[in-house]
């Protein structure tokens, strides 16, 4: 951890970058998180506060641990055999690993969108209605219809699919499928949405559409996005964390990371000299 320089509190972040932003509340916070896959350590002492109603981007070369970190936040790592997480991760100041927290409820509050669109083999309607149904969020069909319509509308997909809600979700194009998955994730009204390289399988037009969507969604949700595209991080995020070799090298306002990085490694990565 030589020369590690991470700003833990938003107040102390670079003045020029943060002066227009009032210091936001911390929604989720990781403190000293280590992750092991068997004997191999994948993450080392990661401290990262996630601000409420902002977009936080995690960047870094492949295998640096950013996706692993993302999966810690809704405990999807629990399903990976041999994976061990230590340290504390809090959601609204409550440790998500504490015995009082039900992982099922945690995941309902912290939704996730995956790298590849993964619609269920069901109709478009049932894909969206899946979450509300299992969580018993609606009392009747009208309410469910309403949630489906709202979610699809918020994901910018409603106008494209409103005539064909009973068709299979897999019949949509790749970009539409990914927006369907976003709509599915927000249908259960989560507080945080994790996105694991949501645009890596999409063309530039679909990517632009999703980025717009992220911009709109962050009014209501806290978003954490893992991305390989630094342009994307610069375009959509307010805060950016740079991961390298399993550690969080630098975390700051996005502008600061891209224009005035404090670490040599960050500088090297964002200017394209390595990674």
């Amino acid at each position: 951890m030589v020369g590690k320089n991470v700003n833990y509190s938003f107040e102390t972040m670079h003045l020029e970058a943060s002066k227009s932003i009032t210091p936001p509340r911390v929604k989720m916070e990781a403190k000293g998180v280590d992750v092991y896959y068997g004997d191999k350590q994948a993450l080392e002492k990661v401290d990262l506060p996630v601000p409420l109603n902002r977009v936080t981007a995690l960047i870094g070369p492949s295998g640096c641990g950013k996706s692993t970190f993302l999966k810690c936040l809704n405990r999807m790592n629990d399903t990976v055999v041999g994976c061990r997480v230590t340290g504390s991760i809090t959601l609204d100041e409550e440790d998500i690993h504490s015995p009082t927290v039900d992982v099922v409820q945690l995941r309902a509050r912290v939704g996730m969108v995956f790298q590849k669109p993964n619609p269920f083999p069901k109709s478009i309607y049932d894909n969206i209605a899946y979450g509300p149904r299992i969580h018993g969020m609606t009392r009747d069909r009208t309410e469910l219809d309403q949630i489906v319509e709202e979610s699809l509308a918020r994901a910018g997909l409603w106008n494209e699919v409103k005539e064909r809600l009973q068709e299979p979700g897999t019949s949509l194009s790749g970009g539409q499928q990914q927006r369907l998955c976003i709509a599915r994730a927000i249908a259960v009204n989560p507080e945080v949405v994790l996105m694991d390289e949501p645009c890596s399988a999409l063309d530039p037009i679909a990517t632009a559409r999703i980025e717009e969507l992220i911009d709109e969604l962050c009014n209501k949700y806290t978003i954490i996005i893992v991305t390989h595209s630094m342009q994307q991080a610069a375009r959509v995020s307010h805060y950016t964390g740079f991961f390298h070799m399993g550690e969080l090298v630098e975390y700051d306002h996005t502008e600061a990371i891209f224009t005035n990085p404090q670490q040599e490694r960050t500088k090297g990565y964002v200017t394209g000299r390595f990674g």
Binding site: N74, M76, T79, V104, Q105, L106, R107, A108, R109, G111, M112, F114, N118, P119, F120, P121, Y130, G131, I134, H135, C181, R184, A185, V188
Partner: peptide
């Protein structure tokens, strides 16, 4: 799709 479902809190 299993992960997708689990991540919904199923």
């Amino acid at each position: 799709i299993r992960d997708g479902s689990l991540a919904m809190g199923a």
